[in-house]
């Protein structure tokens, strides 16, 4: 899972040097084409010498990047994706489609209400809804794996509405 980060870092650092175009670190990865990213693969070794500062510029680690947010939440007993997450998921789709070695596990979760195996299926359905969104947005299906935990891994333990709404989620795990 580390390799795509390094490639991306390599891209961010090396692109201006190699192509001479005015890419700055503040630009998102959408400033790079998939071909450019692929071409940067050769810069992998030199990227490792770029050090910790460069590492922190991964959009996955950058709090100002939409990719920093990797959890979306759901309503009770539904797997419908709230439209407010569309842009967030498009940013992830874009990153996955353009980053050669990037892949993601979509972990589906539910709150504790209802039976455990039904919730396992509900978490699966949520993860699958996100998978379908990403595929529609151009992510190759083989880059995505889904895994439902049902209610077994609550984001917050407890019987409150707050715990429930935090637990009904899909996590994008790179």
């Amino acid at each position: 899972m580390k390799k795509p980060l390094f490639i991306l870092l390599a891209s961010l650092i090396l692109t201006p040097l190699l192509s001479g175009c005015p890419t700055t670190p503040t630009q998102s990865d959408t400033g790079l084409t998939g071909e450019e990213l692929d071409a940067m693969g050769g810069g992998y070794d030199s990227a490792t010498t770029a050090g910790v500062d460069a590492y922190s510029r991964s959009p996955l680690e950058d709090p100002s990047s939409p990719l920093y947010q990797r959890v979306i939440y759901f309503g009770y007993d539904t797997s419908a994706i709230d439209p407010k997450y569309a842009n967030l998921l498009r940013a992830h789709a874009d990153y996955l489609a353009r980053t050669a070695d990037a892949s993601v596990v979509l972990e589906g979760h539910t709150d504790e209400r209802g039976t455990r195996e039904y919730n396992l299926a509900l978490g699966d359905r949520r993860a699958d809804a996100v998978r379908q969104f990403l595929v529609t947005e151009g992510v190759p299906a083989q880059k995505i794996r889904t895994l439902s935990y049902g209610e077994e891994r609550p984001a917050e333990v407890g019987h409150s509405e707050r715990a429930y709404s935090l637990s009904r989620r899909v996590e994008l795990v790179y």
């Binding site: 396992l120 299926a121 699966d124 359905r125 699958d128 794996r145 439902s148």
Partner: peptide, 26 residues
């Protein structure tokens, strides 16, 4: 891939019912 859940032995022990989502959904 997907769910591997709800195992249940048949009364004669020869079969195991289960839930899988490998073909799309549960």
């Amino acid at each position: 891939p997907g769910i591997n859940g709800s195992p249940a032995f048949s009364p004669d022990g020869a079969r195991l019912a289960m839930t899988l989502s490998k073909d799309g959904n549960a």
